[in-house]
Amino acid sequence: MRMKELVSKVLFVDLIKGLSVTFKSMVSHAVTEQYPKERSKIYERFRGEPRMAVDENGKTKCIACNLCAMNCPVGCITVEAERDPETKKRVLTRYVFDMQRCLFCGFCEEICPVNCIQLTTDYEMSQYDRKDFVLELNELEKGMEKIKYKK
């Protein structure tokens, strides 16, 4: 047994085995993705940047029910509303979505009775300033202003 070990050490058997492993992986295809150039496939149910839907008149679909804010596990949604004295309905006055805290669980989307808040498949949401992550209603409707990567 010891003789066998010695022979394999002298002939670098283990070392050659290791070298062959690395050589094989060198001639195989790379598994990495060249990110800004190529992107991996995003599935339909991906939970990305939130958007607020509008109706055909361009008005928000939100009925200020406050369910999204109540359901949010991190409390990143603030809904402010007041009652319209004529129709006796709650009208949205302010809607704030704090992207810094959002964990993209999708509970707001699930609970929304009018399908107003939705999570899109966009995932490139980096900004230079922290205050740019706090989105108001108009920003949520047309989507965040994005910083485009320039080569």
Partner: peptide
Amino acid sequence: VIGHMQVRL
């Protein structure tokens, strides 16, 4: 070379 050996580019 080392990149390709580690299956990246």
